[in-house]
Nucleic acid binder design. Structure first.
Lengths: 187, 187
DNA sequence: AATTGCATGTAATAGGTTACATGATTAT
DNA sequence: ATAATCATGTAACCTATTACATGCAATT
């Protein structure tokens, strides 16, 4: 299977969260808000918007209010199809092969009460736990004694760091899941 | 400037740490040890090894010991040029634009006493601190009150997570730097 | 006998970056 | 005036993934 494209879904999510956006504004979102977990340049965004318009996922809006800003910018809104495509993408379970989708999908869940939130967190918790356990297993097999550590100290440090990283991720996810349940219980 | 390639340097580092390696073994390294921070498939590795041989960074070794394993595999060793190229690459300072090189370079520093270790950690500490502070600034501007959090809860969570991630990275780096200094002092 | 792993290689394609290009507006 | 920012678009190039391909060795 070909590698799944994610850019169009991000653009759908961005437009959804902001009601309507221009290509330039999407660029800014990438620069300021999404830079932490994804990148995209304007030379990717503009052709993609064209394709998405052709596929009827989004539609350009000729804004009548835009007389003041004398700039020629095209705003886009989601079509009904686009809304559905975004929803379907958000509901697709996370997999090992296509990781790092968690922060991206999370980013687009605006509502704390969304029924998408808990399953998403649970899925990432599973992935991160598995990853941590894999790294712990590596540590046990590759560095059984102090001798191996001294022979490949940098390798040892990267493994240590990986385990710390995943452990802290797991902890954050667990704490988040608990806090969300507490909010539910108090209602 | 064109985007800098990193694969050849990783291959140099792998060969360096293991004295000599076959393409297949490098593949295994990617699968088991490096998968945490880099990926490469055999269809990348083999042509790259050819290019590096052409550039005289590495040289194939016709191992006389390989009569038992009846497999036709080519082992590679570093040339003097290759050693130098690797060394130079490891000494290049980390930059914001080409990040995630830290775990990679760290991986190839076998010796705890290497003079490359401390500067590398110091550089990553600077980058991670800057990143954390950037995210903290974003948090302050994008989510000044509870209202904004409720309106874009997922975005808020990703920012929270990013800050936690960088903070834990900073802490790990600081602790590591301290522990390395302690070792020095006791000698 | 059939499957899995070892071992290497090339071709087609997708994805993304850099560079090239244009024109208007706003700030210095 | 000049530079920076807004705003959009295309072309060239590079990188990386998937697929196609081969052949032997070891295991089931």
């Amino acid at each position: 299977m070909p590698k799944k494209r994610t850019l169009p879904y991000i653009l759908l999510g961005l437009i959804h969260s902001n009601h309507q956006l221009s290509g330039y504004q999407m660029m800014q979102e990438f620069k300021h808000e999404i830079s932490d977990f994804w990148t995209a340049s304007h030379s990717q965004i503009y052709p993609e918007l064209q394709r998405m318009t052709d596929d009827d996922w989004i539609a350009p809006v000729t804004s009548p209010f835009n007389v003041d800003t004398k700039r020629n910018q095209t705003f886009y809104q989601l079509t009904a199809t686009g809304e559905q495509v975004l929803e379907d993408w958000l509901r697709e379970p996370l997999t090992t092969t296509n990781d790092d989708l968690f922060p991206l999908k999370l980013f687009f869940i605006d509502d704390q009460q969304s029924d998408l939130l808990k399953p998403l967190i649970a899925q990432q918790l599973q992935l991160s736990t598995d990853r941590r356990d894999y790294l712990l297993g590596r540590m046990a097999t590759v560095f059984p004694t102090e001798a191996e550590i001294q022979a490949h100290y940098g390798h040892y440090l990267t493994l240590t760091r990986g385990i710390e990283r995943e452990s802290s991720y797991v902890k954050w996810l667990v704490d988040l899941a608990i806090s969300l349940n507490d909010i539910d219980d108090s209602n």
